[in-house]
């Protein structure tokens, strides 16, 4: 489940420390050059293989330049090393630079502004629930799993299709009710019930248009089942064990 969060786009706010002062417009123009696909080799301490790879920088927003310090917001693909990015910007500027401070402000659908809780707040919420029987704080601190797939393409299925999906069976066209228009073949799609419960994350076998037109055939294959089997009644039959 969490790999869909890990692999989501990220936004960071970062302080880059230049090793010498550089005119602000030059800093801004060099930062603009780094927007788009860039080459990065993971640092020595990285936990992944250190081969040159391409990562996409969607935007670099320079908020403030004060002496040698540059405050910026970087929106990028998962797996981008901001420390490396700062170093490389320093190289192009010709003065050298390093990352002085870093905070991630967004991972996919998780932002700083929505439901961010501190360890203290989470602890207080648990105490209020366990010791005072008040679960309202805990309900606010913990979000439903559905939030994690908020921005993913989605398929809403019939009640009768749910339990088979919970057992890992692929989804066939007749089980589909509603769908978003951004489903692409071989890409992840989130499968929901009409009550808005996440059933599974699946790999789409058809695009939105194909699903809409299909009378039969498999539309998606679960890769990660979230809902417990048995939540919805079993409405599928095993071969050779038809009900009398």
């Amino acid at each position: 489940m969490l790999q869909y969060v890990t692999h989501a786009d990220k936004t960071y706010v970062c302080v880059m420390a230049l090793h010498e002062e550089v005119p602000e417009d030059r800093v801004r123009s060099v930062c603009r050059e780094f927007v788009g696909p860039i080459y990065q080799r993971p640092p020595l301490k990285a936990s992944v293989e250190r081969r040159l790879r391409i990562r996409r920088i969607y935007s670099i927003d320079v908020l403030e330049v004060q002496g040698k310090l540059v405050l910026m917001v970087v929106y990028c693909e998962a797996g981008t090393y901001i420390r490396k990015l700062c170093h490389d910007i320093g190289e192009v500027l010709g003065v050298g630079a390093h990352m002085a401070e870093l905070r991630r402000i967004r991972t996919g659908s998780f932002t700083e502004d929505e439901g961010l809780v501190t360890m203290h707040q989470l602890h207080e919420a648990v105490v209020a629930w366990r010791e005072l029987g008040d679960e309202s704080l805990l309900r606010k601190a913990v979000m439903p799993v559905e939030h994690a797939v908020k921005d993913m393409p989605k398929i809403y299925v019939r009640d009768s299709a749910v339990d088979a999906l919970c057992h890992g069976a692929p989804l066939a066209a007749p089980g589909v009710l509603h769908l978003t228009d951004d489903i692409k073949r071989r890409r992840p799609v989130a499968i929901f019930t009409l009550k808005g419960e996440l059933v599974a994350i699946a790999e789409a076998l058809m695009s939105s248009t194909e699903i809409l037109e299909a009378d039969r055939g498999l539309v998606a294959k679960p890769t990660r089942v979230i809902m417990r089997p048995g939540t919805y009644p079993k409405q599928w039959k095993s071969k050779g064990m038809e009900k009398g």
């Binding site: 809780v117 360890m119 989470l122 979000m143 799993v145």
Partner: peptide, 25 residues
């Protein structure tokens, strides 16, 4: 009569199927 909208889950199930946007120090 079966299943449950995410906002109405019993608290134990809510925790089981929950995500925390934690501000890690």
């Amino acid at each position: 009569s079966y299943g449950c909208p995410p906002s109405e889950r019993p608290i134990e199930l809510h925790l089981d199927l929950g995500v925390v946007n934690l501000d890690k120090p």
